[in-house]
């Protein structure tokens, strides 16, 4: 490591949220390794600070998440058991086990597993919110890989033309599944925003407080009718794309880990950090013990016609 990463100050409540998501995702990978979870999962290890920083800024808004969405959900809703039960197919899941990891729904929250699809849909929700005139916005989390999809540009064009309260939070983690960003994205995301005349901000820090101070006023402008906004977070994906399918070199992964918020936050005050860390680890263990003992999710009611 050429330069030691600087320490990072995080408020207690935010640190608890960060650590809980870290332990949730780590536990999921362990559950997969043990064969206790079916299907697939995409963890947000390393990116936890983005949804934690944004959650209080988006309280009354509509949020669209994606395949890598556990952190988005956990930062917004105090419902880890509902999420874990959904992923494990146990009773009490957010969507009764029908949706699974990538398809979550709450009245103003939704995730889907098709890249780019959510951008025009979020623009439609933004149109609804614009017409309602209550200053709400629609925000969609997307990745750098998502910018390969044409639907993104059709949605952005419409949002810019109609000055919709739409925000894209781009979690640019430098890799789309196994493809490095510089091999799948020509030009820059900033350049693409400029092409549509859409406001853009790049965020390089992982300091939760700094992010809130920077992004909060930008969201206020969107609420005031300023039109859409793209915020690009240059972030780090510490884990595999899904489960053990990481093609990066050990040196690359080590560099990412040394820059991660976890060690840098602990460096400042290990005693307090370890105390909060242990509490969140125990909380996750309790959630897991609860959910793992639940019955499997009940009968699938089917679609209207299949049931008829």
């Amino acid at each position: 490591m050429a330069h030691p990463a600087p320490p990072l100050v995080v408020a207690r409540a935010d640190l608890a949220a960060l650590l809980f998501i870290r332990h949730f995702e780590t536990a999921l990978l362990e559950l997969f390794a043990q064969g206790r979870v079916a299907g697939t999962t995409h963890t947000c290890l390393g990116q936890e600070y983005i949804p934690v920083a944004l959650a209080p800024l988006l309280a009354g808004d509509h949020v669209f998440s994606n395949h890598r969405g556990h952190g988005h959900y956990l930062a917004r809703y105090d419902d880890p058991a509902g999420l874990l039960a959904e992923i494990m197919g146990r009773a009490g899941g957010v969507c009764g086990g029908v949706g699974g990891s990538q398809h979550l729904w709450r009245p103003d929250y939704l995730s889907t597993g098709v890249q780019g699809q959510s951008v025009p849909v979020a623009a439609g929700v933004a149109l609804h919110l614009q017409q309602s005139g209550r200053g709400q916005l629609a925000a969609a989390f997307v990745g750098d890989g998502t910018f390969g999809e044409g639907a993104v540009y059709e949605g952005l064009n419409l949002a810019a033309l109609w000055r919709l309260p739409l925000v894209l939070f781009v979690e640019n983690n430098g890799i789309a599944q196994s493809t490095p960003t510089d091999r799948q994205l020509a030009g820059t995301i900033a350049g693409r925003a400029a092409a549509f005349g859409i406001a853009y901000a790049g965020v390089d820090t992982d300091d939760v407080g700094e992010i809130r101070s920077a992004v909060g006023p930008l969201l206020a402008a969107v609420r005031d009718g300023g039109g859409p906004l793209i915020v690009e977070f240059r972030t780090r994906r510490l884990g595999p794309h899904s489960k053990g399918d990481d093609s990066r070199t050990p040196a690359e992964l080590a560099a990412l880990r040394s820059a991660d918020w976890y060690a840098r936050t602990r460096a400042l005050d290990p005693v307090t950090f370890d105390e909060i860390d242990e509490r969140q680890r125990a909380r996750m263990a309790a959630v897991l013990a609860d959910v793992a003992n639940r019955e499997p999710a009940g009968q699938w009611a089917g679609t209207q016609w299949a049931a008829a």
Binding site: L110, Q117, V119, P120, L127, H128, E154, L158, L161
Partner: peptide, 26 residues
Amino acid sequence: PGRVRATPISEAGFTGVACGLALTGN
């Protein structure tokens, strides 16, 4: 006006916008 809108040549885009409007009860 406002509820009936001419769109760009973007079938995926405006159908997606329609989905968002339907999702919010319209």
